[in-house]
Amino acid sequence: MIEVDSINSFYGKAQILNDLSFSIAAGEVVSILGRNGAGKTTTLKSIMQLVRPRTGSVKFNGTEVVGSPPYKVAKMGLGYVPEERRIFTDLTILENMEVGRQPAREGVPEWSVDLLFELFPNLSERRNNRGKALSGGEQQMLTIARTMMGNPTCLLLDEPSEGIAPVIVEQMAETIMQIKKQRLTVVLSEQNLHFARLVADRAIIIEGGQKRFDGTFAELDAQPEIQEKYLSV
């Protein structure tokens, strides 16, 4: 479904991704792991074209997306959930979700406000509250709900467990499992190995913008030196 082929991405002069390649099959949940600064966020942004890779190719369902503006990529069915909870703080929950709304798409379930409120009951209670009145966890859920309103076929989740209370992390994991049941493809970047293990089928480990490991968690467990080298201290 997603084919990333030797992309090199930069912020100004700083090279963040270095000949990175991987592919994601439809229906898979894949976690991109790595320490902070490893290039996880940039990887997702490079798929979404929020960062345009200087060289290399990113294909989504066979279509080249490098060079397309992000809105076109979103319309193809890629849903992007940013880190740092970039919600529109002046807008209410309902309005935030309206911004993300896109027409239904073939082959994936159609999400409505009501369906999403079932998934995120906390948001339902506060639907007319402005974004800035929400807690960190609620904001994080809102970013996911907002993107789901676009009925994506593939979800890019940037560090969904970061900076939120453990009980919310648990909820978040359950939510991702729910989304997974809807046959959605999910790519999530994570620092938290245990969280990733809980929700993902496969792990891709990057460090210094390069891929260091690509395989199942069982395979990862068989190579403790990889964990040691790229994830732990």
Partner: peptide, 15 residues
């Protein structure tokens, strides 16, 4: 209103 606050994010949501 959303774009006044964060144009890039509005674009990433398909607008």
């Amino acid at each position: 209103r959303a774009a006044t606050q964060d144009r890039e994010m509005v674009g990433a949501l398909g607008v």
